[in-house]
Structures are given as C-alpha cells and as structure tokens.
Nucleic acid binder design. Structure first.
Length: 203
DNA sequence: AGCACGATGCTCT
DNA sequence: GAGCATCGTGCTT
C-alpha cells in the first residue's frame, strides 16, 4: 500500500507527452488524472472529455487572429496550462500542445472526481463536474494558473498517468459552442469522450 | 428530457 | 461595442 506522496519520482506526464500532434494528445489525455493541490489537499479526477484547437488556420481556435495577450501561452512550449476567462464568469483549462511557436491546445472539458471528493462536492455544491467551467470551479483553477507547468507538482496543477482507455471506448464529435465559426471548422470531429472508467453520464 | 434565457466581465476590433 | 470554447434555473412537453 502506498500512502505517501513520492517526491523523488515525479508522477507527472513529461513535456514530450504534449509535444505531439494535438489530436493525438487530445485522445491520449482521456483516462489521465488531473490533479490540483489546494490548501495541502490533492483534488483530482480522471479526464473524460477533451477538445482540440489547432493553429491559426483553425477558425474555432483563439489563435485564429494571430498572437494576442490572451492567447500568448498557446504559442509557447507544450505541457503548460492555457487558462482563459469567458462569459463573464467562467474559467477554461487547456493544455498547450505541439512544438513551441505553433499555437495549439487541448481543452479539458470534464473529469470524473477521484481524490478529494468531499471538497470537490462542496465546491460544486453537490453538482457534477462534467463541463469545462464546472471542473475549473471544482478544482479552484483560475487566472493564476495561466502558464502553469502541468509537468511539475510545484505548480499546484499537474497531470499524471491514469487508466488506459482503449480506442473502442473513445467517442468523437463536433466541438461544442462554436455557433458562429464557419465550416469546415465548426463540424470538425475534434471532441473526444470516453465512458471509462465507470460510465459517467454523458451531457 | 429538452429548450430558452439571463448572468456578468474580459478581450479585441 | 460586440462577441464569447458556459452554466443554472425555470418552464414546457
């Protein structure tokens, strides 16, 4: 039984994990474990839904109009958090992917809570964590984490290896909420979901 | 179970 | 000044 946190071998996925085509990373992140160290307690869960946003050519991506102050982190090295604010109240968490200089990221849309269940439930007032703004609220992720290193526990927010998700358990579909984005970008099947590990409800 | 809508503020043109 | 990579409530089937 392992009851203590092993500081000698970092449990985090390495930066190279993210230095791959964004679609590959979006798939590979399913089943991985997102962890937030909040007030000395680990809150975390299995990533069950992601979306890919790929380069300036992708008109659904925030980089569609080039580099700005908001999206600058996406142009940086892979394995860092791109966190932005939207709809006047919600924070969104992305993992930057691909080589430095190429603006791309994976939006983490849902987790199934695994660690710190009571705190997560309290922060969510008993409601679910299936949704990009819901999970950031559950874990306490906000502007302070824009640019955070997802490959180091020192950042307080990282991603570890989790449970393997076979290809047959991955569902794809169009990305959510891109109402005014022109085709073909609006319909690209760049949303990925899994029903593992224990069949959370879909939304 | 599914729609309609209001909340609320930052970013970029 | 417009447009958001959303959520929760409340109302209708």
């Amino acid at each position: 039984m392992r009851s203590t946190f092993d500081l000698r071998s970092s449990p985090c996925l390495p930066h190279e994990f993210y230095n791959r085509p964004t679609l590959a990373v979006a798939c590979a992140l399913l089943g991985m474990r997102l962890v937030r160290l909040l007030d000395g307690v680990q809150l975390g869960g299995i990533i069950t839904e992601t979306e890919a946003y790929i380069g300036e050519a992708d008109l659904g991506c925030h980089a569609r109009s080039g580099k700005t102050r908001r999206n600058a982190v996406m142009y940086g090295p892979p394995g860092f958090a791109y966190v932005y604010f939207t709809y006047g109240m919600h924070w969104m968490l992305n993992a930057v992917t691909g080589p430095q200089g190429f603006p791309a990221a994976v939006l983490i849309r849902a987790i199934q809570p695994l660690q710190g269940l009571e705190i997560i439930s309290a922060r969510r007032q008993g409601r679910d964590t299936l949704g990009p703004a819901k999970l950031t609220q559950a874990l306490g992720v906000d502007a302070a984490f824009n640019g955070a290193d997802l490959c180091s526990p020192a950042s307080g927010l990282w991603i570890e290896a989790g449970v393997p998700v076979p290809q047959s358990n991955i569902l794809t579909g169009p990305r959510v909420g891109l109402y005014t984005v022109p085709e073909p970008w609006k319909s690209k099947p760049w949303r990925f979901r899994t029903t593992l590990p224990s069949a959370p409800p879909t939304r």
